[in-house]
Amino acid sequence: MLKNLLEYIGVDEGRVNFSWVSAAEGGRFAELVRGVTAKVKEIGPNKGLISSESGCCGCKN
């Protein structure tokens, strides 16, 4: 639900990731985190909810 809402309000798709990993699954955890970091690097820096379109005060700077 949270992921749905965040993407609905304009957070880049793929930037929010959830998973469930047991404390005994170290290998799987590392693999998941590698996957997620690669994905997020591909999306690039987070420009925020509004600053990607406009500046601090609604200007375009």
Binding site: E7, Y8, I9, G10, V11, D12, E13, L49, I50, S52, E53, S54
Partner: peptide
């Protein structure tokens, strides 16, 4: 699109 949604909400 996400950009349109962001723009509307902003």
């Amino acid at each position: 699109t996400a950009a349109e949604r962001r723009a509307y909400l902003a």
